[in-house]
Design a protein around this nucleic acid. Structure first.
Lengths: 339, 339
DNA sequence: CTGAAAGCGCTTACAG
DNA sequence: CTGAAAGCGCTTACAG
């Protein structure tokens, strides 16, 4: 950048005042510091003329605040994460914060080093979808009183702010809907993981089955949690086996990538499915629109999740210490409801 | 953060040396500055014991480098942008840079203020997919010698680094492929915009038609460039009209969102398409897999685009002044080629 | 109402 | 080989 940067002291010199005055005026402290009205006007005028842009780095060093939020998610290239990121970025900007993003690939080592790297960049706080096996690292953050908010997932043993979906209700309701539509042999397809949000989806499914006297019909198919492309291959393999083994009249996919992979597998392998097969999955609207069996899907309120997380985090940064647990409600979109 | 931060001078005091020495050693300048071997060891040992993390803000203020890249795209929640963002973030991290992301929504005012906000956060350089109507702002950046790289698009009148797809060849080859497969009435569906990358896709289409003696069969359908959901509605409307009016045996969608919307419209409205209809679009693999007509798609090498952009930018930041124009090659994935 | 000055935590000529 | 000190560009008590 060739053109010499305009500094605070350039304005001060031109206005014939100290840099302190300029700083006060430009930060809106003119009332509090009772700066003379004419001085205020002169300073503002000169600042505008010179197109002064304060150096955020210097300001941060002095004030100890960077007005930056670190966002750690599994993978931005995943549309689910991408959309949340978008809403987070928007809300943060609205509140005067900039967002730094990093992806964990569900790897706890990478998760940990991302946190370190963001912290030494002095982010004011973190929003994160934690990878499994990261609770030690998280406990450190709690101890060091780093402001942070979990999103989408959390660790049950750690008291920390989080914004998550009502995972239990989501699958519970979906199963009831399927049963109300005459299905009895409903298979849950889910990642093989102990992560709480997935466990709650399983529980919602099982309870709904039980509450309808269908506990003997429970079928859970676990797919290894691996990278997106591997998930696709794994799901394909499992779908083949599934339909070879069992009689089923409904599938409930407990995650977005699973739905897409599963539907794709059925199509690609020309798996013969029962005529009355009904399918429900999480999000994945675009794909569902292209495929016949699905009768409904569970839509996660990503905007609400994202903006809520930012709002909570900013409160924490500003000193509110109360721990906040927010559960956002899913939307259930069926053909009838006009999805 | 309660636990007191470890500072450079804490290490210096404990080691009984000056902060300068510590800084040299920790920055790997021990050879250059010929620091005593035992001192080096002592400093490293203490730094590790105390788990010293340098304050990046202080370092930035002093050095004038933030090791941060600003990434400006249309919309992170768009999977296309999200994936590029992912690759950019990965390559940047590999080279020691952090990425700040902002979305323009194709709005030149927002584009401009994003640039300002990133610049005053002292990013070392920018990677951006410029919104239309932003050439004035860009000219300023050039004049101020801000290092930047365009991605996906560029302004023809401005000599600046860019990494773009071989847009002309992409549609030229696609048309030839369709013709080789017996299609003659090929309709190009494209955004109504003068943006260069789109213009080149049109040109590739028209030249290919002409070179095959089919200039009288040229049909171009323009869809307004609006937000994603509006695009969907607009495309649906246009698809209806299109098939009412014209006889066609192939569609070439010149953008990803158009392909998805277009295919969806055909499906949803149950538009009767000719049996032999062939469809080619840009990316959108997931959806193409679910739909019969497509016989091929144009895959953009997003990883190459992203990593290349970062590499070029970092070179520019480090002082290389040569302007770089890189054209990455599309991949053509057809049923036969095993997509 | 206003100014001189300290200080945020580093890096880096400069002097020895 | 090593240290004392200036300085990056701000903010903010402190003194008047």
């Amino acid at each position: 950048m060739m053109t010499k940067k305009v500094l605070l002291k350039d304005i001060a010199k031109k206005a014939g005042v100290s840099t302190a005055l300029v700083s006060y005026v430009l930060n809106g402290l003119e009332k509090e510091k009772r700066v003379g009205r004419d001085v205020v006007e002169k300073i503002n005028k000169i600042a505008k003329e010179l197109n002064y842009q304060p150096n955020q780095i210097a300001r941060s060093l002095r004030s100890g605040k960077t007005k930056t939020i670190g966002l750690i998610i599994a993978d931005i290239s995943n549309p689910f994460s991408g959309q949340i990121a978008r809403f987070i970025e928007g809300e943060a900007a609205r509140l005067g914060y900039t967002v730094i993003i990093g992806s964990t690939d569900e790897n706890s080592t990478k998760f940990s080093s991302l946190i370190d790297s963001m912290l030494y960049r002095q982010v004011d706080g973190l929003i994160m979808a934690p990878a499994e096996g990261s609770s030690q690292k998280i406990k450190k953050l709690v101890k060091e009183q780093v402001p942070f908010v979990f999103i989408d997932r959390y660790f049950p043993g750690i008291s920390a702010n989080h914004v998550v979906l009502d995972n239990y209700e989501a699958t519970y309701n979906a199963v009831n809907y399927l049963i109300a539509h005459g299905r009895k042999n409903i298979c849950l397809i889910i990642y093989k993981t102990l992560a709480v949000h997935m466990q709650q989806r399983i529980l919602g499914y099982k309870h709904a089955m039980k509450d309808n006297g269908l506990e003997d019909n429970i079928i859970v198919k676990e797919i290894p949690r691996r990278s997106y492309f591997q998930v696709k291959a794994d799901t394909e393999k499992n779908m083949d086996e599934l339909f070879a083994d069992k009689k089923m009249d409904a599938l409930l996919f407990a995650a977005n990538a699973l739905s897409i992979s599963g539907l794709y597998a059925i199509r690609k392998h020309k798996i013969k499915v029962p005529d009355e097969l009904a399918v429900i999955g999480f999000d994945g609207h675009e794909v569902f629109d292209f495929f016949e069996p699905p009768i409904a899907y569970i839509k996660q309120p990503l905007e609400e999740m994202g903006t809520e997380a930012v709002r909570i985090l900013v409160e924490q940064i500003k000193g509110v210490k109360k721990t906040v647990h927010t559960e956002v409600k899913h939307q259930f979109i069926s053909r009838e409801s006009g999805g």
